[in-house]
Design a protein around this nucleic acid. Structure first.
Length: 570
RNA sequence: CGGCGAUUAGCGCAGUUUGGUAGCGCACUUGGUUUGGGUCCAAGGGGUCGCAGGUUCAAAUCCUGCAUCGCCGACCA
């Protein structure tokens, strides 16, 4: 490709709205352009990278025996009615009508369509197992699209769906997908970790996410220092403290604490260690009547409530819903900020870590007062204990070995064992060996193809621009001729090398613009081409050119005749 | 959905307080200069000042409404 005949679209200035470095660099390198909120055009350089990612994903999926199909993005709402998700999915599901006023949705995922296909096409256990995948555009009407293609509304995803007559068979495919994903992200040159994940609204029993580690990630991942254990903080278990609760040493005292509404304030004003404070959060329980059924959750002041864990507790609303100030006052007679477990007329669930604190400080259930020196059992019953909090740095690992550390990750893959949720709802069954109908056990496996491009940049860049892993680079090598329009020798050598490298199978970008050298260097570094051949009068007397690598500052002078073999050997 | 903010050339912004000729930098075009790291000089093209009303002799500027975009929060495969 000659730059003079290409749409390069590099920008010198940093676009104002781009927050994260990958978004900035994708705009500056001419990879994407925004069309509307969360919608992007992939310009030539960006599309080349996207295709590289797709190719690797496709190769590895094919290698596992999965079979590629392509399903429509526009899907009949009837199918979603059937699975029950038309009501459940919420506003992220974009609904639309055609000219006949028939209802459709833009597919955010394809469980319904694939289930419909399989129930029509597959009727015998002999046709199973089956793993079908596609690489296709999805649409999710995100509340707040951001970070460029990292969280956009329209995006490209590889999604696969497997069908089985037994759990054991599903587990085998699940493991094959796990392994394939590991190979894919390794080939893409990414620093990634598989982590145990929440199954979320998709449901199912077992799930792993694959995260690219990057500070701009939107998820927190907990790792064990001593083992392979890694889990999304959403799910990571906060193990019960090994130590027993210490004996009470203080009397319970009610103290006036006017204007003290937060834990931070309590700690600062009354010089209490934050680990000795307990906070009480009021949430909605499942209610049989119109009246709210409130439940209290008690945590240590320095711990965060994990809403996913809490929502899984019997009797609590899922998703979790916080009570508002009026509801709290109605039920307890006190304002948020002074609530505590002592004498609280609500079901009270205590976090494991909060349950072992002694001599603690907490709200007195009286506006403007807190109780100091409170102890469980002596002053207030502690009947219900559960894991309610997010794990934090230094917690014991649930695997039993080591402690946890926490890092940010970008979710680029997610695999689920779905079970029969969809096949039951949509009656996806076959006749088994005994001639009986049996609903199929399903798995589903997603990879965020467009997100991978952004994630790779987050992990691979410097002040000058992107540094592509070889497998993703839009071009393998660029040819930079110095002052070609003045030097016939430079032009001849550049043209010859361009031709030779293409013949040797390289994807080459040849910067034949009439630009100053600095402009060429800057553009090619910004775009992140791994290998550069610089051709200048300076070295031509010796029939030599210069090689530079984007990922290191290596510069190698070599005879023109060596270039093809040198690049082949890299 | 709530709070805050923005909208002026392709991009980044000033001008709005105090109404009176539409500006700057980058990018683009032309000519010259320079030539191994985002040159320098000169000339030029490009605007319904988000949209719709209103006030006024006169509106980018003041008033009203709307739209779009962004940030924070809530929410969330």
């Amino acid at each position: 490709m000659r730059t003079s005949q290409y749409l390069l679209g590099t920008l010198k200035e940093i676009p104002a709205d781009a927050e994260v470095v990958s978004h900035q660099l994708m705009l500056r390198a001419g990879m994407v352009r925004r069309v509307a909120s969360g919608l992007y055009t992939w310009t030539p350089t960006g599309l080349r990278v996207l295709r590289k990612v797709e190719r690797i994903v496709r190769e590895e999926m094919n290698a596992t025996g999965a079979i590629e199909i392509l399903m429509p993005m526009v899907q009949p709402a009837d199918l979603w009615q059937e699975s029950g998700r038309l009501d459940d999915y919420g506003p992220e599901l974009l609904r639309l009508k055609d000219r006949h006023q028939r209802d459709f949705v833009l597919g955010p995922t394809h469980e319904e369509v694939i289930s419909e296909l399989v129930r029509k096409e597959v009727s015998s256990y002999k046709q199973l197992p089956l793993n079908l995948f596609q690489i296709q555009t999805k649409f999710r009407d995100e509340i707040r699209p951001r970070f460029g293609v990292m969280r956009s509304r329209e995006f490209i995803m590889k999604d696969a769906y497997s069908f089985h007559t037994s759990e054991a068979c599903l587990e085998k495919t699940y493991q094959a997908m796990y392994d394939a994903y590991s190979r894919i992200f390794t080939r893409l040159g990414l620093n990634f970790r598989p982590v145990i994940a929440d199954t979320g609204s998709i449901g199912g029993s077992m799930s792993h996410e694959f995260h690219v580690l990057a500070s701009s990630g939107e998820d927190d991942i907990a790792f064990s220092s001593e083992s392979d254990y890694a889990a999304n903080v959403e799910l990571a278990e906060a193990v019960a403290p090994a130590a027993e609760r210490s004996a009470a040493t203080e009397e319970m005292v009610k103290t006036a604490t006017p204007d003290t509404k937060t834990i931070q304030h309590l700690v600062e004003q009354f010089n209490v260690p934050v680990e000795k404070t307990l906070k009480t959060l009021i949430v909605h329980g499942v209610s049989e009547t119109d009246q709210p059924n409130l439940v209290a959750l008690v945590l240590r002041g320095d711990h965060n409530l994990n809403e996913i864990k809490a929502a899984k507790i019997e009797g609590l609303l899922s998703p979790l819903e916080f009570a508002n100030d009026d509801e709290i006052r109605e039920a307890t007679g006190v304002s948020p900020g002074s609530i505590g477990p002592v004498g609280l007329p609500l079901r009270t669930i205590v976090d494991r870590s909060a349950a072992v604190v002694s001599d603690f400080v907490t709200g007195a259930n009286e506006d403007g007062f807190h109780l100091f020196g409170v102890n469980w059992e002596r002053d207030v019953a502690c009947t219900e204990v559960a894991d309610l909090r997010d794990v934090i740095e230094g917690d014991l690992s649930p695997c039993g070995k080591g402690t946890l550390s926490i890092a940010r990750g970008i979710e680029v893959g997610h695999i689920f064992q779905l079970g029969t949720t969809y096949s039951d709802a949509m009656k996806v069954g076959v006749l088994n060996e005994t001639g009986k109908n049996q609903n199929l056990t399903m798995g589903c496996y997603g990879i965020g193809v467009s997100r991978i491009v952004a994630a790779a940049i987050e992990q691979n860049h410097d002040d000058n621009g992107i540094i592509w892993p070889a497998s993703m680079a839009p071009f393998d090598v660029c040819i930079l001729p110095m002052n070609m329009h003045k030097s016939v020798r430079v032009k001849e050598v550049a043209e010859q090398l361009y031709s030779d490298l293409k013949t040797a199978g390289f994807e080459v970008i040849f910067d034949d613009r009439k630009e100053r050298p600095g402009v060429m260097f800057a553009d090619m570094e910004l775009i992140g081409i791994p290998h550069t051949i610089v051709i200048g009068e300076r070295n031509l007397d010796e029939q030599a050119v210069e090689y530079t690598s984007r990922s290191s500052s290596d510069k190698v002078k070599m005879p023109i005749s060596d270039v093809v073999n040198y690049l082949k050997a890299l």
